[in-house]
Design a binder for these strands. Structure first.
Lengths: 182, 182
DNA sequence: CATAATTTACAGACCAGTCGGTCTATATTT
DNA sequence: AAATATAGACCGACTGGTCTGTAAATTATG
């Protein structure tokens, strides 16, 4: 893994925990053990460019995890496995790691709009991915239901993190069938 | 409105837009037009104490708005009016103001746990308030449904802000009845 | 009632540390 | 030689926080 990739990867980890404003370039450099010149060589536009790339990176990495959870399972079972991924990430990180995109998106409006747009693109990608999965399983109105399911998951992710209690995520399993059959 | 209240009120506005790390005390002082000594007189424990109070303040102020929207309406209509409150706040602020609590809660895990606990308390308060409203309208399993509804709303709030598009919030109206009748 | 003592509140200069970013210099690779 | 990448000293602006001082309000005491 080269310097550029390591910078993006570590930044992705940090913004997930602390968001845009909470993540400082000095801390990134310290963790990657790279001097400042290297960062500005690979990312001439500085922090904003690096964070934008880290948003895309975190989005793709998360999509792979969800894809693995869904693969080969019927709709209801697959979605429950997706929730288990989120639960596992919260508990493994002592409730520091919730949705890597939401952490940055919350600050949109006060930051470079390219970063907000990157967050939006990642969300759309996730949603299309899930809609395709549902369609292949014969679920009707898949696009709208995928939208709804992600809203549920995002919200439960926030509530579980704030309460340090995964019960808000686990509760969603009860409503998967309700949404799918609606 | 005295100095202490003005500090809390402005801080509440700022953390809603920029979260914990994005809100600096110098900016707060500038907006309130108060010297630093006054802040540390009223809040000897500094930024964390002020933000904790601002979280409670923002939580109560938001609860009143939701309460006004719900009052006197049947369940489905009241919940739709709640969504309209969120939509209105997003558009009026050019998508800067989403959930005032989530903005801070996203950073929990990296900040004083008292602040996270304050966020959790506000969420529980909102949820109990909504559960009571639903119970009074004869909805069964009101507590669980209130939990679910808030998860939906929180998630849609985040998605609408990130996309600069209220459609994610408005979509929730279609699912209110689905949840209430489940 | 007057005034002294005490508390509450406001005021801002100042501090060490960190912020994101620029700059020049040196390796390393092609 | 030229392009790419690493290296870190350095910069002004800003961070949250401390400090000393003053003004105003409140309480105690004669």
């Amino acid at each position: 893994m080269n310097t550029r990739e390591r910078l993006i990867s570590i930044t992705s980890d940090l913004i997930r925990k602390k968001g845009y404003f909470g993540t400082g370039i000095n801390e990134i450099l310290k963790q990657v053990a790279v001097p400042k010149g290297s960062l500005y060589h690979h990312f001439p536009n500085g922090k904003d460019e690096l964070i934008r790339e880290a948003v895309y990176y975190g989005g793709e990495s998360q999509m792979h995890k969800y894809g693995n959870a869904l693969r080969g399972k019927p709709a209801e079972e697959g979605l429950a496995a997706m929730i288990d991924v989120m639960v596992e990430e919260l508990t493994a990180s002592n409730f520091e790691d919730a949705c890597p995109i939401a952490a940055v998106a919350m600050a949109s409006g006060s930051i470079d709009d390219d970063i907000r747009a990157a967050c939006a693109k990642v969300f759309v990608g996730w949603q299309n991915d899930l809609a395709g999965y549902l369609e292949r399983r014969g679920v009707d109105n898949a696009q709208q239901k995928a939208e709804e399911l992600y809203a549920m998951f995002e919200g439960a992710y926030v509530l579980s993190k704030a309460h340090k209690d995964v019960k808000y995520l686990l509760l969603q399993k009860k409503f998967i069938a309700v949404i799918l059959n609606s």
